[in-house]
Design a protein around this nucleic acid. Structure first.
Lengths: 187, 187
DNA sequence: TCCCGAAATGTACAAATGTACAGAAAGGGG
DNA sequence: CCCCTTTCTGTACATTTGTACATTTCGGGA
């Protein structure tokens, strides 16, 4: 209890985390409704019994995996916030961050998986709102609530677009559209 | 009508359609991955055997139900197009159509269900793209490809926003944002 | 009228699923 | 060394699933 790294014997914590992580991967890949104990066990490289030992029910495991995905998204959000703080909250910086974020599809897929799951599970709505609310929060100081919300909604659309379409949106396009929405267009 | 319905017990076409329609309803409500033969049969008010008689496999039935939903979305799109043709393709008209479309959530939910299903089934991508592509098509003549695409993406984000959030977006907000994106100067 | 093909239905069954749990294995304290 | 608690693992089982099909019912043509 006092020492953090001493107590683990055969390491239940790591195992538990591996199971949650495997479940999260599978949710992103095949959807929240298609995960099973056996699939998760196979992905995590543990026997079936391990998945039932750490989580009373599959719903519990699912819920924890979703929270795991939300944590990934939060980490990405934090990175974006610090970048914006550092380099200024301008359409150009935003567009570059977005384009880069779209290229590394991981956090993107995680967030879309959460939102997708929330469509059929109202309890997840709160989590699904997180991304766009945070994004709007970053922008509200510089551009006001109206434009900040519009930009967040647009960025949400951008994410879905890149999730469904093969060709990514160009950085120039993103910058131009964001400049319009945020009202920074230079004539 | 009741008498006729009872009398007309042998009516393969109607029955088939009832099954597809029930499946579509359920897909919207509980997600494409959660529908089963038995749920569909119960919803359609037919015995289990009826669902297997008309469709070789559950996948076939699912696919047809998705196409049914797409047809609903297409009908809504056609309505929007004729309205735009009639009243002019302006941010104000668009905002009003959107606000009205959001209030009647049916076509909205149908489209989001298709997109959601497409996240985990690449074969549905084509269908999922349809809405925003058509929307962009309406706008490209008046506003150019860039702004038309941006507006379509924004509208996609609006739909997701209203699917996840409880409070609807105001018409004034939509009009203002669309005016910015489409480059029509209003003050 | 009767009869035959089409349609409808209930049931059966193998496979997959969530979950429980009896042991086996492991590791530290005596 | 042994023992006892914690951790792990395989198996079992009831339930639900997709699907097949034998049987029943219907309705129109002879």
């Amino acid at each position: 209890m006092t020492e953090a790294a001493v107590r683990r014997r055969r390491d239940p914590e790591t195992r538990r985390r591996a199971i949650v992580s495997a479940a999260a991967e599978l949710i992103v890949e095949i959807g929240v409704g298609a995960v099973t104990h056996r699939l998760i066990a196979a992905r995590a490289g543990v026997p079936l019994g391990a998945t039932t030992q750490y989580f009373a029910t599959l719903d519990d495991l699912r819920a924890e995996a979703l929270r795991f995905l939300v944590a990934e998204v939060d980490a990405r959000i934090d990175g974006i916030r610090s970048d914006l703080d550092e380099r200024g909250t301008t359409p150009a910086v935003l567009a570059e961050l977005l384009a880069r974020g779209l290229a590394d599809a991981h956090a993107l897929e995680a967030d879309r998986a959460v939102v997708t799951a929330a469509v059929n599970d109202p309890q997840l709505r709160e989590l699904a709102r997180r991304w766009s609310q945070q994004m709007a929060g970053f922008l509200v100081a510089d551009f006001g609530p109206q434009r900040a919300t519009a930009a967040a909604i647009f960025i949400d659309g951008v994410f879905w677009h890149s999730r469904i379409n093969d060709e990514p949106l160009s950085m120039a396009f993103l910058e131009s559209a964001l400049a319009d929405i945020l009202g920074t267009t230079t004539t």
